[in-house]
């Protein structure tokens, strides 16, 4: 009753924004509501179809990729960088400068969803935050050799049963003593270098739910590979992404002023590799 009323309010107040718009291909219960517990859809070739608008169930993954109570096996320099980022509350994370989250943490921003469009030869991921995208090539190509380092790296995907496995390499990373080059693995600030190789495993468990784990292999920053917590995502039915460009960044100046003052009061040597 409440949700029916909610739907009518949303339709009445926001239909012009496509925030509430019935999408074709959505399985529905007899009362017309999206059936998020229906089986996962399949493509013509019988593979699961990950297409849809998804939102992380919690900001916890975005804060810290690791399972609760565990720590990443960081090399000493990486541990110093991480410690400094935590101590300064991540004030100089890429987003402060209107640079985006990266892989995988752009998917874990719970406040802003992302949209997967699965096609036969490429999977496209559109991120609402900052209007950025990612391409996962599924035409059988190999990862490039010696690619130009990129914020999102280069991604290839393949199916192992119902699990979609994505390999990504060719990232920009921490170079020398510049700890601001490239993305952070999470908001707490787990760093990575250009040696990063990520393996993501996606599984759409039913129409409305998807889970993913990522394995981090970066021998320049970590003593061994490590695997994230299992991250869970819920489909956002009958809606669309909206624009989110960084047009009015009022936070940068005040953050820099405040934290430069804090750091001058307690200087740190973190960031030296």
């Amino acid at each position: 009753m409440l949700s029916a009323a909610l739907l009518s309010v949303m339709t009445a107040t926001t239909s012009a924004q496509w925030l509430s718009i019935p999408l074709p291909g959505t399985p529905r219960t007899p009362d017309g509501k999206p059936n998020i517990n229906a089986p996962a859809p399949k493509t013509a070739d019988g593979k699961p179809d990950l297409s849809g608008i998804w939102k992380a169930d919690t900001m916890r993954y975005n804060d810290n990729l690791l399972p609760p109570g565990t720590e990443a096996p960081m090399l000493p320099w990486a541990a110093e960088v991480y410690k400094h980022r935590v101590a300064t509350m991540g004030y100089d994370r890429p987003m402060t400068f209107c640079m985006p989250h990266g892989v995988p943490d752009n998917m874990t921003v719970a406040g802003l969803p992302f949209k997967i469009i699965q096609t036969p030869n490429v999977m496209i991921v559109l991120f609402e935050e900052f209007h950025v995208y990612r391409q996962i090539q599924t035409d059988g190509r190999a990862l490039p050799i010696d690619p130009d380092p990129a914020w999102y790296g280069y991604s290839i995907g393949r199916w192992d049963g119902d699990t979609f496995i994505v390999d990504t390499a060719g990232f920009k990373g921490v170079v020398g003593d510049n700890s601001r080059e490239g993305s952070w693995l999470d908001n707490n600030g787990h760093p990575h270098t250009d040696a990063l190789h990520l393996t993501e495993r996606f599984r759409r468990t039913n129409f409305g739910h998807m889970e993913m784990q990522v394995t981090v292999d970066d021998p320049k920053a970590y003593t061994r590979t490590w695997t994230s917590d299992t991250m869970r995502f819920t489909l956002q039915p009958d809606t669309e992404l909206l624009e989110h460009l960084c047009e009015n960044n009022r936070d940068l100046t005040s953050l820099q002023q405040y934290w430069k003052g804090q750091e001058q009061a307690a200087p740190s040597t973190a960031g030296k590799q």
């Binding site: 900001m59 991540g90 953050l255 405040y258």
Partner: peptide, 23 residues
């Protein structure tokens, strides 16, 4: 209903593009 939406939304952490805690 709008108030209900507000309280539902407020019960989960939303997003700031920078660190809320830092500012």
């Amino acid at each position: 209903i709008l108030m209900c939406v507000a309280s539902l939304a407020a019960s989960g952490r939303a997003l700031a593009h920078h660190s809320f805690a830092a500012e």
